[in-house]
Design a protein around this nucleic acid. Structure first.
Lengths: 246, 246
DNA sequence: CGGCTCGTTGACAATAATCAAGCGAGGTGG
DNA sequence: CCACCTCGCTTGATTATTGTCAACGAGCCG
């Protein structure tokens, strides 16, 4: 049983190992803390604004996004999650959700009861700092998006996003920085970039015309990764892919 | 000596007490962990992108902002800090700064060596969760700004910002939600809202014309707070001003 | 076959940036 | 004490970017 859990948590462990070494006891604690696995279909909400979840959710496979609706009826994503991400680890200290998370594609989830996380914080200070770190990585991605939304053109933001997703997916063993599976619609892209779907479409076509992007049948490739990074001002420092004691 | 420290940390303790009760030992630990106080002048950087600080910095008085520059030479703020905020608590788990923080006005800072924070994480699990919580509150503010930048008009974003700052300053005892001191320039506002300074100015004037804002000599008042909140779609849930066990 | 969703296109309107100039208060030095 | 200088704020004219509205086509699934 534990072997199955461990296998499913592989992207998660890769994500952690990119930042610090994990002790055997810590790894076991993370495996034991999983109470269940669940599946949700594309488009379903995983948690909702206002919820007070009693559990945290780790994305095992699929894609998910944190979002909120605004009065005009538009949606804005604040973060796209890839496998290995904790979707709502912050709900453990924060208690109440101030936003929702939806599945962008069929997802498998690993469930961590808050009580199990609390036990970790009481018994494993170093592991606690790593969990803390994970929530801070979310914050770093969100800072980056503020900068992109505030100061980059729509085209540069799109290039940045495709570079970011490539780097994150590669880090968890799910593709290459310039070649990965991405089951999103152009509306999803628009909701990430803060654009109308019409304009998102035009931006995608412009990137295609410049030979910076192909995106068909849920597969993204970046034929000229260096140029895409330059256009999107992508500097992966903010991903903190540095393994060191925390 | 400790009384002086405690007095200076008053906004910080207020900020914490808005979220959870603090034990006497925890309070003492937070007081003892301060190694020094420092002053910085307006415009100075407090920490810089790429730094690997050995200490965390708490804002005692003044205003500061996290920011990054983009290739065009423009600046984007990702968060404005008010007294009682930890400016770079995240540097403790994250190690390397992926952005800079500057003083927007003369600031007094309390210094917490990373080692002192680490000791807290080894000895005070509940207090550790509260520190974690504080970094998550930064994340919540940043999420909110993604939503504002992505989906609200410039005018709505400005209204939102003035409401947010009022709520945060009131919570630490430094003004009222509709009346507070704000020593920022219009350029600072532009860098927060992701606008040019010219457009920021026009937005301010539009709010003035609608009798939603006065802003002279560093003093902000919101004559019609309800209308400002409505325009900016300001719902303070994301501030998590809820006192409960964490 | 028909009804979805998703992607695409064109014409037009709204929002915000850019460029250029001038104003006014506060501080500095002669 | 006053001239001058700087910084922040303001304004107008113009351009660039992005949104809105409307329509249509391709592919998939029941």
């Amino acid at each position: 049983m534990d072997e199955l859990v461990e296998k499913r948590l592989d992207p998660f462990f890769r994500r952690l190992e990119h930042r610090d070494a994990l002790g055997m006891a810590e790894q076991q604690a993370l495996i034991k803390a999983v109470s269940a696995f669940e599946d949700v279909g594309a488009g379903a909400d995983i948690v909702r604004e206002g919820d007070r979840p009693e559990r945290c959710t780790l994305l095992v496979s699929g894609f998910a996004a944190r979002y909120r609706m605004v009065a005009s009826g538009e949606r804005q994503f604040t973060l796209i999650h890839v496998p290995g991400d904790f979707i709502d680890l912050h709900s453990f200290p924060l208690k109440e959700m101030d936003h929702s998370v939806m599945a962008l594609a069929p997802c498998q989830l690993a469930i961590y009861p808050h009580q199990a996380i609390k036990n970790i914080t009481e018994e494993f200070p170093h592991l606690t700092r790593l969990l803390w770190l994970l929530t801070l990585l979310d914050g770093a991605l969100q800072r980056e998006w503020i900068i992109c939304l505030g100061r980059l053109s729509a085209e540069a933001r799109a290039a940045h996003l495709f570079c970011e997703l490539g780097a994150r997916l590669e880090a968890v063993g799910l593709g290459a920085a310039d070649d990965y599976r991405l089951p999103l619609t152009q509306q999803d892209l628009a909701d990430t970039l803060g654009l109308s779907s019409v304009h998102a479409n035009r931006v995608v076509q412009s990137l295609r015309k410049k030979n910076l992007l192909t995106w068909q049948a849920n597969r993204v490739t970046l034929p000229n990764l260096a140029a895409a990074k330059a256009l999107g001002e992508f500097d992966e420092r903010y991903l903190h892919h540095i393994r060191e004691p925390r």
